[in-house]
Nucleic acid binder design. Structure first.
Lengths: 155, 155
DNA sequence: AAGTGAGTTGGTCTATAAGCCGGATTCTGT
DNA sequence: ACAGAATCCGGCTTATAGACCAACTCACTT
């Protein structure tokens, strides 16, 4: 599940998961994906369920009253949307409107998909372009300074 | 039990637990939830009963004369309200008026629900918005410096 | 050039949320 | 103690978002 794709959202905000990701999910017997916010950039992350289980349990176990930890939990867990799909169909996925706003893809017809191995990311085409060329993103997100204990974790 | 929802309170301050949380509770054979104050922010936390039992017993076992600990105990334990619901109905939950005041949702029609795995939080829509965008909250709550022994505890 | 697979779009139907209403129970004041 | 008021609780109705189903188009392959 690697590589860059430009795909289109329809008027209802639906995304058809590309065939090459689809087959990867089917091969691993995944029937759900979880879509949530990226805490650092105006973009979304899509995880197969098995991987989400790892991430969420790690995050939940980081309990306590540290405001930075709570921020991460709110952003990642609090915005997660579990989406079940039929492996026989086209895997149409409705991106919640809240998340569409966050990633700045509310009115976009085209979006960028970036495959990152066992997860992939959803970007506004222009924001992805900017990030690639080192420009600054229009939308400013959490500028968190992460504690050492968290920096090493993978989300 | 993940994700963000905006739901409405009826004229009587009742909250209908969203279907996606409801099924989680039913699957875990929960028939009671406990609603209490968040000690750090003007918001409420809702726990399934089984999880509450863990939390409360941990908190109760924290002995000593540390004023911060005593504050935590008062805030969390002293405001807990056990609410039983009928799994077959809509799970209408009446939020105690004291807690509605605390979370600043007394006169609100809409509130934000944030699912955090095995618990969820209740926020005034504006406060949640502010928190997400990094603004300061209108209501200032405990600004405690937490002892190390407590930071790591789960509430 | 016909067929296959992938992407995209549209329509329908159901589950869910929200508002309303009536009845029950508790509270309050006289 | 009783009447009136306020609060609480369940059921019913309606509107709608989103899930499901299916068709159409386009591109690529052989």
């Amino acid at each position: 599940m690697y590589g860059f794709n430009t795909v289109s959202l329809d008027q209802k905000g639906r995304l058809a998961i590309p065939a090459k990701y689809r087959s990867h999910l089917i091969n691993n017997n995944e029937t759900k994906v979880v879509i949530t916010k990226d805490p650092q950039y105006p973009s979304l992350k899509v995880y197969p369920e098995s991987q989400w289980d790892e991430i969420s349990s790690k995050l939940e176990s980081l309990q306590g009253l540290d405001p930075i930890v709570r921020n991460l939990q709110w952003t990642i867990l609090g915005n997660a949307s579990v989406i079940e799909f039929d492996p026989n169909s086209r895997m149409l996925v409705l991106i919640p409107s809240e998340l569409r706003k966050y990633a700045d893809i509310s009115d976009q017809k085209q979006i960028s998909l970036i495959g990152m191995g066992n997860k992939f990311e959803i970007w506004n085409v222009n924001n992805w372009e900017m990030r690639q060329t080192g420009g600054s993103l229009s939308t400013e997100i959490l500028d968190v300074i992460l504690p050492e204990s968290i920096k090493s974790m993978s989300f």
